[in-house]
C-alpha cells in the first residue's frame, strides 16, 4: 500500500511539475463553459438543473481523457524510466494502480473546479442538489472508465500519438455502442440478446441514467467492472512486454 501511495504521489506531482495540469484544467473548464452555456443553452432553458452541463461530458472526456492518459506508460517506455521503476521492489499492479489513481484523482480535481456552475444554478434557482451530486459521481466514474482504457493502450506503445489516437477510437466505440447508428448495424440479423448486450456496453446509456440523477447499481457495476477489466489488461501489457 505504501508503494502504491509513493507511486501515486509522484505521478500526481508530475502533472503539476509540468504545464500539463494547468493546460488541461484551463481547456477542460473553457470547453465545459462553451458547451454548457452556448451549445447547451443553460440560461435560455430557464430550468435550474445541470443537464446541459453533464450531457456534454462524454464528448469532452472522449478527447481530453486520452490526452491525459497517453503519457502514463508511453512516456516511461520512451524515456527508459520504466527500467528504473520496474526494477524497484514493486509489483506491476502497485505501479499500474498508483499511476491510474493519480490520473483519476487529477480528473477529479478538474471536475471539482467546475463547481462554480453548480453554485450558479443554486444562485439562480432551486435545483435538486441530490440529482447534481449523483451526476457528478456518474461523471467521475465515466472519466475513470475512459482513463482505464487510455492507460492500458498507453502501456502497449512507446509512441504517445499512437496511444492517443487508438485510445480515442476505442473510447468512441464504447461511448456510442448504444446509439442507433451502431445498433442498426446489428438489428435485422443479430438476435435481440446481442443487440441488448451491445447497447448495455455503452458509456452513454449507462451515463444517461446517472446524469438524470438515478443511481442504479447496474450502472455503477458496469463502470467499476470496465475499469477493473482495463486495469487488469494494463498489468498484463506491462508484464508481457519484452524490454523497454
Amino acid at each position: 500500500m505504501t508503494k502504491t501511495a509513493a507511486i501515486f504521489r509522484r505521478e500526481l506531482a508530475a502533472y503539476f511539475a509540468t504545464p500539463v495540469a494547468y493546460v488541461f484544467i484551463v481547456i477542460f473548464l473553457f470547453l465545459n463553459g462553451i458547451f454548457t452555456f452556448y451549445l447547451g443553452d443553460l440560461y435560455g432553458r430557464g430550468q435550474a438543473d445541470l443537464i446541459p452541463f453533464f450531457n456534454w461530458h462524454p464528448w469532452l472526456y472522449l478527447f481530453l481523457v486520452p490526452a491525459l492518459a497517453m503519457r502514463l506508460w508511453a512516456e516511461e517506455r520512451r524515456s527508459g524510466t520504466i527500467e528504473l521503476v520496474m526494477t524497484l521492489p514493486v509489483a506491476v499492479w502497485h505501479v499500474v494502480v498508483g499511476k491510474y489513481l493519480a490520473a483519476w484523482c487529477f480528473t477529479g480535481i478538474a471536475l471539482a473546479l467546475t463547481t462554480p456552475v453548480w453554485i450558479t444554478v443554486n444562485y439562480l434557482g432551486d435545483p435538486d442538489n441530490g440529482v447534481i451530486i449523483a451526476s457528478y459521481l456518474g461523471s467521475l466514474l465515466m472519466a475513470g472508465a475512459f482513463l482505464a482504457i487510455g492507460a492500458c493502450i498507453s502501456a502497449l506503445t512507446k509512441n504517445q500519438v499512437i496511444a492517443f489516437v487508438v485510445a480515442v477510437v476505442v473510447s468512441f466505440l464504447f461511448s456510442v455502442s448504444g446509439l442507433p447508428m451502431v445498433l442498426d448495424f446489428f438489428s435485422g440479423w443479430a438476435p435481440q440478446a446481442i443487440i441488448d448486450a451491445v447497447s448495455a456496453f455503452s458509456f452513454l446509456s449507462n451515463f444517461q441514467n446517472m446524469a438524470k440523477g438515478v443511481i442504479d447499481m447496474r450502472n455503477i457495476v458496469y463502470f467499476a467492472s470496465l475499469i477493473l477489466f482495463w486495469l487488469f489488461a494494463n498489468v498484463l501489457a506491462i508484464e508481457l512486454r519484452d524490454g523497454a
Binding site: R10, S79, T81, T87, P89, V90
Partner: peptide, 30 residues
C-alpha cells in the same frame, strides 16, 4: 529487488523531478 541497487544503462531518471524529490521517491517506494 529489495536487496539490489541498480543503475540502468544511461541512468534514466524522471526529468521533471528535482534530484531531492527523486531520491525521496525511490526511498519511499523502498
Amino acid at each position: 529487488r529489495d536487496r539490489i541497487g541498480y543503475l540502468p544503462e544511461g541512468a534514466p531518471l524522471y526529468a521533471d523531478m528535482t534530484a531531492g524529490e527523486l531520491l525521496r521517491f525511490v526511498a519511499g517506494v523502498r
